[in-house]
Nucleic acid binder design. Structure first.
Length: 395
RNA sequence: GGAGGGGUGCCGGAGUGGACAAUCGGAGCAGACUGUAAAUCUGCCGCCUUAAGGCUGCGUAGGUUCAAAUCCUACCCCCUCCA
């Protein structure tokens, strides 16, 4: 099968009243209907699940991580094993992140300059560096379907000057990545940066759009800024992105954020949240998230979510799930992950068919009306505490 | 019968005159988690109270002291060793 990487995406239908679009992304491992959600499988595995299970859940595309795979087992080994698909026995499309996010999330261990990123391995402390060119080479050798440019992400409180600097560097790196990228079967997506500053975001989107990438990602959001800001920035950015190219909102999201994102014209999402949160006992339901380890589930007969068709809900009671979590039984993590990914998968399906039938606006209102979101204030406070904890432990 | 050790909050277990409502674990309760260094982290956890504050409290009952989980006396219970 041959694909032309400049025409990798088709918008099949748009929505009156919102920016939502139904589309199709062509890859070497099959076409993917969008809007789509990619579960995160950094280390060549979506934690706790097999490829068969992912498929049964309805997952069509996953995300892998260059940073992790480079450190372990190493790009050489995966290349020798026939590429990441073969290595992990996943036959669907894979997108890899370039490692740009790790620069940001592991910042005490990382330095950035124009040449690239210098970082310390979280595994053994050894020093490594990624240039934009190396990031491309590694991803090409992993043999995945969509690859990402190396970018520099900035945190929420960062001064505008610093954010601009990172954005401009991201642009220079994007150009170098484009130049380096020789495997014309793997579309390379650019990443828009610019923090929470609309004018920077506009500038970033315009600059990158002019470089004519086959797809565009929005990076550096959902990092602790107010939701209102997130959506304002997404809106600002998508307005400047080409209509006929896929838009990928990196690191988002939660069910409610996905719906919000779709309504602003986002086609692709990836996020660690559904799977991570599952492992910690928080399961999605149409009414919002529920921590199954709560005492109220101790004696609840019947499934956690009456409307769910996933293996977990079809087979086990909420009380049993509660018990597994209380005991720290390994099965708990798997069952919860199955449920959350199925929830997201059905959400995406629902979104797509609503766009198809021209009812997305109603779908969105209905979903957001029912889905109780987590407390924003608690979210921000705890995020700060978590970051403080990280800082102290790394000192 | 003799000798020794010990009884602390739901549990384990520190503390041996003031800084103790009592370190620390565990359990329990609640919350968070957004391009995964996350099967992680945070808070609460005697009673009343939103809080300030108040009340009760370290086997039981007395006592010494300005002050006792900590010292003294008696009693109750548990464990180990000897007979």
């Amino acid at each position: 099968m041959t694909i032309k990487i400049k025409e990798v995406f088709k918008v099949l239908k748009t929505c009156d009243g919102t920016q939502a679009r139904l589309g199709e992304l062509a890859t070497l491992h099959g076409a993917v209907s969008t809007p789509v959600f990619l579960p995160v499988g950094s280390q060549g595995t979506v934690k706790t699940l097999t490829p068969e299970e992912l498929q049964a859940i309805g997952i069509t595309m996953i995300l892998g991580n260059t940073y992790h795979l480079y450190l372990r087992p190493g790009i050489d080994i995966i290349e020798k094993m026939g590429g990441l698909h073969n290595y992990m026995a996943w036959s669907g499309p894979i997108l890899t992140d370039s490692g740009g996010y790790q620069v940001f999330s592991l910042s005490p261990l990382c330095r950035v300059n124009d040449d690239g990123v210098i970082f310390r391995s979280h595994i053994d402390g050894s020093e490594h560096s990624f240039s934009p060119e190396a990031a491309i080479e590694f991803q090409e050798r992993l043999g995945v379907d969509v690859i990402m440019v190396l970018d520099e992400c900035t945190s929420v409180g960062e001064k505008k000057m610093r954010v601009r600097e990172a954005m401009l560097r991201t642009h220079r790196w994007a150009e170098r990545c484009l130049k380096k990228h020789v495997n014309q079967k793997q579309p390379l997506f650019a990443i828009v940066q610019g923090g929470v500053f609309p004018e920077l975001r506009r500038q970033s989107a315009e600059t990158l759009a002019a470089m004519d990438f086959p797809g565009y990602a929005i990076g550096g959001l959902s990092l602790g800024e107010a939701k209102e800001t997130t959506w304002q920035i997404v809106q600002t950015t998508t307005e400047k992105l080409p209509h006929n190219k896929p838009r990928y909102l990196m690191g988002v999201g939660s069910p409610e954020d996905i719906v919000e994102g779709v309504s602003r014209g986002i086609d692709m999402f990836d996020c660690a949240l559904p799977t991570r949160v599952a492992r910690n006992g928080a399961l999605f339901t149409m009414k919002g998230r529920q921590n199954v380890d709560k005492s109220m589930f101790k004696t609840k007969e019947g499934p956690l979510d009456d409307n769910c068709d996933c293996y977990t809900c079809q087979t086990f009671s909420a009380a049993y799930l509660h018990h597994l979590f209380k005991c720290g039984e390994l099965l708990a993590y798997r069952l919860a992950t199955i449920h959350n990914l199925r929830f997201i998968s059905r959400l995406m399906q629902g979104i797509r068919s609503a766009i198809q039938s021209g009812t997305f606006l109603d779908f969105q209102k209905d979903f957001l009306g029912r889905y109780k979101t987590t407390n924003e204030a608690a979210r921000i406070t705890q995020k700060q505490k978590w970051l403080d904890g990280q800082r102290n432990s790394s000192d």
